[in-house]
């Protein structure tokens, strides 16, 4: 198995966690209730921890231009948008809508849960260890999202409508999570990676069951957005990176 392949794969998972941590971080001091500020911050911190482990691993496998390993911060702050390989789902802005935050978290944490549960058996020891730790965190994220989808769906008529809209809004970005490409095929054959296509059934089954209990409908759409794994992002990504990176880039080589 090639280090380059493993690094590219770790980067995908790391970017997913990093970008969602950035989005979740926006909720701290803006949540609907103070208890929820604390809960969302916990989730953001878990995701940030996963991102750091995965980016550090990716950076160690592939040497940078100076011949040394690239740090988590090099990878976070010094890559351009096209070099980020997260799925588009995680970069979608919430525009202050808690329903949107929760809809995305339900889908993404369900996906991450199945992914990490399987990846804990990876032939790659580091990925297996990261996954074994993260699956417990993500289990809680999924539960948190589930609790909220139930309450917003089966709450008031207004909340039901808003939760349904939020699911509808994220749905065109769901299928991207299950896409397989040559990199994944190579790594799956070496038992390093998990085939995203195989996650589709369990993830959608879990999400559908929650949506159903919440008296909501699983959105039906033929629209499918994709491209994140190839560095093609939504317009929102440029703004996200501008905010994330501007300070670090304003002081090249600085230590913080």
């Amino acid at each position: 198995m090639s280090d380059t392949d493993i690094a590219a794969y770790a980067l995908r998972l790391g970017d997913d966690a990093l970008v969602l941590a950035q989005r979740m971080g926006d909720w701290i001091a803006s949540a609907p209730q103070l208890e929820e500020d604390v809960a969302l911050a916990n989730i953001a911190l878990d995701l940030l921890g996963q991102a750091r482990a995965l980016l550090t691993y990716a950076g160690a496998l592939v040497l940078g231009a100076d011949g040394g390993p690239r740090s988590e911060d090099d990878l976070t702050y010094l890559r351009d948008e096209r070099e980020f390989v997260n799925a588009q789902l995680v970069e979608l802005p919430d525009h202050g809508d808690f329903g949107h935050c929760i809809a995305r978290l339900l889908v993404f944490s369900s996906w991450q849960y199945e992914l990490y549960a399987a990846l804990a058996d990876s032939a790659d020891q580091t990925l297996a260890a990261v996954a074994a730790k993260a699956v417990k965190e993500v289990d809680y994220h999924r539960d948190h999202a589930t609790q909220w989808v139930l309450r917003l769906g089966d709450g008031t008529p207004m909340s039901r409508q808003r939760m349904q809209h939020a699911l509808d809004a994220v749905w065109p970005h769901v299928e991207e999570l299950f896409e397989t490409d040559d990199l994944v095929v190579r790594l799956v054959s070496e038992r390093v990676a998990v085939d995203p296509a195989e996650l589709r059934t369990p993830v959608l089954a879990y999400v559908a069951a929650v949506v159903d209990r919440a008296t909501l409908a699983v959105p039906v759409t033929t629209v499918r957005h994709s491209g994140g794994r190839r560095g093609i992002h939504t317009e929102a990504m440029g703004y996200l990176l501008a905010e994330l990176q501007h300070l670090a880039r304003s002081h090249p080589g600085a230590t913080w």
Binding site: E35, V38, A39, N42, H144, Q147
Partner: peptide
């Protein structure tokens, strides 16, 4: 939710 909030807090 009280249990979960208690866990987080």
């Amino acid at each position: 939710m009280a249990l979960r909030n208690a866990r987080d807090l």
